[in-house]
Design a protein around this nucleic acid. Sequence first.
DNA 1: CTAATTAAATACCAGTCGGTACAATAAGCG
DNA 2: CGCTTATTGTACCGACTGGTATTTAATTAG
Lengths: 202, 202
Amino acid sequence: MGLNQNKPSRGRPKTLDREHVLDVAMASYWKEDIGNLSLNEICRRCDISKPGLYREFLNEDGLMKAVILKYHQEVLSPVQQMLSHDAPFQATLDNLILFAVSADDSQGAPKGCLLIKMREAQMHLGEATRAQIDLIQEQAVATYKKWIECSQAKGEFTVDMTPEFAATYIDAQLGHASSQLARGEDPQMVKRILMAALSILK
Amino acid sequence: MGLNQNKPSRGRPKTLDREHVLDVAMASYWKEDIGNLSLNEICRRCDISKPGLYREFLNEDGLMKAVILKYHQEVLSPVQQMLSHDAPFQATLDNLILFAVSADDSQGAPKGCLLIKMREAQMHLGEATRAQIDLIQEQAVATYKKWIECSQAKGEFTVDMTPEFAATYIDAQLGHASSQLARGEDPQMVKRILMAALSILK
DNA sequence: CTAATTAAATACCAGTCGGTACAATAAGCG
DNA sequence: CGCTTATTGTACCGACTGGTATTTAATTAG
């Protein structure tokens, strides 16, 4: 674990491991009540001091935005890329469903999508965090839309429905499933409901 | 506003208006971030002292349970009763949709269902509160199920689907719509999505 | 060596939280 | 009139929060 690459070499060497902090924070936000997870607690878990965290991330808003960015890069991007491969529409949709309800049932494992959990959190989020969530959300819907337009052109998506609405509908139902999983509902039932809801696209 | 009915007539007369406190608390929980609404703030809004609130409701758990109970009686019960009238299945379903997305668009008005908002809150809820939510939830699904079984017997519900699953599905989609409204999404779009999701029941 | 630079952690700030001890107050009863 | 009973609000508790002022430690430049 090599902290950072380029050392401008001056002053006391940095010991704070940014990626480690982000890993710990991401896991914590993902698994626990975001609104009740304090910066103090995160510092304790990373074994860093509070001023250290503030120097690296400016404030809570900066940390959460960085966490979201990392989550998007590491978790969401691969799924979005899947939508660009030209596999059959139904196969891709099935993969999407599988990904959405794939749950590590081990105790303490995160359930559902962190981004959606944050979007649905009732708590006040910082400006940067909120903006980042909205941006990724819009990107996701746009990606769905392109995928559907593509499938429409290939004659694999034939339902009488605008790609715009279909994209919004898929995003909504996937979000719904994630929310149910996060709440602890039975993954089998979540999958049944999700498949039923998405069956209108056939 | 007549505080309470029966005075056992002894000791200092009570001035705390239980129903008023519940009204204020319900509106507050409904409109704002439940996890960030403190008892201190509720006391301020009701113009009562903190020990007064604790004497009446024991603790935060007791207050929230009482709020949920009142919400169920005043808001949810009428809807559940509608399901017992033997109107045509589709008409009742339409009414359900209308009720779910009926939103007062005035600023500061509550959006969505308070019970669902509480159910989806990530924060830790007290035992009594959690139990009360689960109870009402189960009652709701059971009511949906009976309604569907009834409609099935009348030949108005003919989809190949167990009433059990249909009830769960309806509950899930109504909850989803409520959650979207609470998040501030466009009621028209929420309605479109809800109608699309429930179209599989036709 | 000293000076400059950068990051470290301790110790603190005012504010808020859920919850309570306690004394004052207001009524009926004898 | 006191005595009992019940409700009131003030003033407090320790714990925690997001955030910071400040000192100390570790390094390089000259």
